[in-house]
Structure formats: structure tokens, C-alpha cells
């Protein structure tokens, strides 16, 4: 079973927000979709779940198109990031009503889990969503995602506005559900550092293009930070893919991405340190600021 999108292009009033995106999401994985603001994360998730039409390209689940296909759609859940500001129609809706509609539409809705989570998060479901804090709205996003029981579940910024304890709770709940069900989760997030360890695969979206898709550990292991005297660093990293150089006086630091078989010349007088997913991401996508 896999969800495949091929050559997705999305244009909004002449501006291309997604360029030729092709992905394969396999069964029983936790994917992280990371990218800067405006990289097209929400648009991509909306298209993968047929909530927004594509300009060109196709999305299919097990070979069946997803668009207007109830059988495919029933296996997908995109729990959207909720922003119940005054303009949103949801502002006047009670959380209870939102959850009730979700429980009507998701075939395998887990009522018991819903009650358990509402209690765990201490969420007042009788409150109107317009009167809720960002953290409370994120809790609703999480509840819908977990209780939907959809084999492919997408969460958009599920931890935005949550305090550190609630975020920790979410990661544990997610792992528990993943272990119990083997569902595939795709999580878009800004808070990379915390989520890094739970993401088996990472997809980096930059300016509407997928610039990296693969095993998180392999990606992180392929990157390192080389620092020392500028000439030594340049010599040690000659011929390698380097990003995001930083210099202070004679000292230089640079993030290196090694291809299989490559290595940093450690006979030079340089320090080579491992980097985190977040640092590797900044090195790849923060280039403009560095120049």
C-alpha cells in the first residue's frame, strides 16, 4: 500500500507554489514534512488528500486516484491546522460540534479514544473555537488525527502553541498509536529539533520543490560540521558539497553533506562535529540569509 503523487504542479493566480513534486509515502512510517514558512507544506498536504485540486499531476492510493474517490478518501485523514479567527466560519462553532462532525465522517472513529484524549488534554469542548487558544486548537487537530484511525493520517503543525508538557504528551501518544496500529503519519512541523527523533523519514520542501526525501538517520549521518582555520577547512572539504559557510576572522565553519563513499580529510587540523536534523535543515534551506 502506498500513496503516490506524481509531477504535482500547483499555481495560484499565476504564481507557482509547487513545482513538479513527486513522492511516494509508504505504509507504516512516520514522515516529517519540513520546510520554511511559505514553502508549500499545507498546499502539498491539501493536494495529497484531494482537498485542493492540482493544476497538473496526479495523486493515487494503491493505484486508485484519490480525487473524488470516496474509497480512497476514506483511508486518508488530513487534520488541518485550525485558526479560528473572526473571519473563519469555525469561530462560532463549538469544539464539540467539530468533533461530532468528524466522528460522523470518519468511518473508524474511535469514540473511546476521543473521550480519553479530551480528558487528558483537559479540553473544554463546550467552548467556541473562536474563543480557544492556539494550543487548544492544536489539541483538537491532534484528537481528530488520532481518533480518525485513517491508515494515512496527515497533521499540519500539530504542536503549534502547545506547551512543552503537552508536546511531549503528543509525541508519546503518536508513538503509542503508531506502535499499536502501524498507521502512516505525515507531520508537518516547524519544531524540528524535538520531532527529529520520531521521524523515520524526512521530506524537505523548499520553495515548492522537494529537495530531500529519505531516511532521517541516513540524512543526519551524512551531514557534519567542519570548523577550524579557513584554509584548513577549505582543504579538508575540497570537492565536497558544502553549505552555509560562516567565518569569523581566520576561523571558518561549514556544513558538509557527504555522498556515499566521501569523507572529510581528517588529516587536516579541523574539528568535525555531528549535526542535528535542525542544523542540517538550516544549512540546506537557510542559504539566502548566509549570502
Amino acid at each position: 500500500m502506498s500513496l503516490i503523487c506524481e509531477k504535482i504542479v500547483k499555481t495560484y493566480s499565476g504564481k507557482e507554489v509547487l513545482h513538479d513534486v513527486s513522492l511516494e509515502l509508504k505504509e507504516s512510517r512516520i514522515y516529517g514534512l519540513i520546510g520554511r514558512n511559505g514553502a508549500g507544506k499545507t498546499t502539498l498536504l491539501s493536494i495529497l488528500t484531494a482537498q485542493n485540486p492540482t493544476t497538473s499531476g496526479t495523486v493515487s492510493l494503491d493505484g486508485q486516484p484519490v480525487w473524488e474517490n470516496r474509497r480512497s478518501l476514506a483511508r486518508l485523514c488530513f487534520s488541518r491546522e485550525l485558526n479560528a479567527n473572526a473571519e473563519s466560519g469555525l469561530a462560532a462553532m463549538k469544539a464539540k460540534e467539530y468533533l461530532r462532525i468528524a466522528s460522523t465522517y470518519y468511518e473508524d472513529w474511535d469514540k473511546e479514544m476521543e473521550q480519553k484524549l479530551v480528558k487528558l488534554f483537559d479540553l473544554n469542548v463546550k467552548k467556541k473555537m473562536g474563543k480557544m487558544s492556539k494550543g487548544m486548537l492544536s489539541m483538537i487537530t491532534i484528537i481528530v488525527a488520532l481518533c480518525s484511525k485513517a491508515p494515512y493520517t496527515f497533521l499540519d503543525e500539530p504542536v503549534a502553541g502547545l506547551d512543552v508538557v503537552a508536546r511531549e504528551q503528543f509525541y508519546k501518544l503518536l508513538l503509542e498509536e503508531y506502535a499499536a496500529s502501524g498507521r502512516t503519519f505525515v507531520i508537518s512541523t516547524h519544531i524540528i529539533e524535538e520531532a527529529a527523533d520520531i521521524l523515520e523519514e524526512v521530506i524537505i520542501l523548499h520553495d515548492g520543490k522537494v529537495i530531500l526525501e529519505g531516511d532521517t538517520q541516513t540524512f543526519v549521518d551524512s551531514a557534519c560540521y567542519v570548523s577550524g582555520k579557513a584554509e584548513e577547512v577549505d582543504a579538508a572539504t575540497a570537492g565536497l558539497e558544502t553549505h552555509h559557510p560562516e567565518t569569523i576572522g581566520r576561523s571558518k565553519g561549514v556544513t558538509v553533506f557527504l555522498k556515499p563513499g566521501q569523507q572529510v580529510d581528517e588529516t587536516r587540523d579541523v574539528s568535525v562535529q555531528p549535526v542535528s536534523l535542525q542544523r542540517a535543515f538550516v544549512a540546506l534551506c537557510g542559504e539566502e540569509e548566509a549570502k
Binding site: R70, L73, C77, I101
Partner: peptide
């Protein structure tokens, strides 16, 4: 008129087809 701006997108977001 309210149903169009609130419920139609909401139902689509919960995986209902446009036809339905």
C-alpha cells in the same frame, strides 16, 4: 449561505467527495 462558507469546506476537509 452560512452552510456554504462553513460546512461545505469542513466536510471536504473530512474526506467527503465534492459530489456527495
Amino acid at each position: 449561505s452560512g452552510a456554504h462558507s462553513i460546512y461545505v469546506p469542513l466536510l471536504l476537509s473530512m474526506g467527503e467527495t465534492r459530489r456527495n
